[in-house]
């Protein structure tokens, strides 16, 4: 049990615990804030695993942008401040499928890796990551930028009711 192991266990426990609160909390806003904790713990895991750039991108994009978007959506849909009673469907099917997937995958991974001990990686620098992206993966990178642009345009078109809406009646 090294320091890295202890860190991984602690951060993993925080991530899984707050993740469980995300999917069980009856407060919409609290679910969003627990998501922040979970994603932050994941960023810590990335740091321990030596993926510095991914960790900071995670903090910037997920905690900084995605969660803020989700909280904006919570506010724009006039979610109640207090607990809501109608957030959940019956638990059994979700419990069976979700528990089956989670525990099944965990059993697979545990069986595959047992107690293999891996040397701690040297922290990956942004330089190495940049060389990978702009060397081997430059075409997917460009495709991704086009996808982002089309997602942006699509979101704008979707949220403007005067584009492409049926003229009679309307919403």
């Amino acid at each position: 049990m090294t320091v890295a192991d202890a860190l991984l266990l602690a951060l993993g426990a925080v991530a899984v615990g707050s993740g469980a609160l995300v999917v069980t909390s009856t407060h919409l806003v609290r679910a969003g804030l627990y998501l922040v904790v979970s994603l932050g713990a994941m960023a810590g895991l990335y740091l321990v695993l030596g993926a510095e750039l991914v960790a900071w991108v995670q903090v910037l994009v997920y905690v900084g942008a995605v969660v803020v978007l989700l909280l904006f959506a919570v506010m724009l849909t006039r979610a109640p401040i207090g607990p809501s009673a109608d957030l959940d469907r019956p638990a059994w099917p979700a419990l069976v499928v979700g528990g089956g997937v989670g525990l099944g995958l965990a059993a697979l991974f545990i069986d595959a890796f047992r107690w293999t001990i891996v040397a701690l990686p040297v922290p990956g620098t942004t330089e190495r990551m940049g060389a990978e992206i702009f060397g081997t993966w430059v075409l997917p990178f460009e495709v991704l930028s086009i996808l982002l642009l089309s997602a942006l345009v699509g979101a704008i078109v979707l949220s403007r009711p005067d584009i492409g809406a049926p003229k009679e009646g309307g919403a």
């Binding site: 991984l8 993740g19 979970s38 965990a106 991974f109 890796f113 891996v118």
Partner: peptide, 13 residues
């Protein structure tokens, strides 16, 4: 570092 810890965490998440 035990490889199984982050993998199991990911599976549970």
């Amino acid at each position: 570092m035990h490889a199984v810890i982050p993998y199991a965490t990911a599976a549970l998440l």
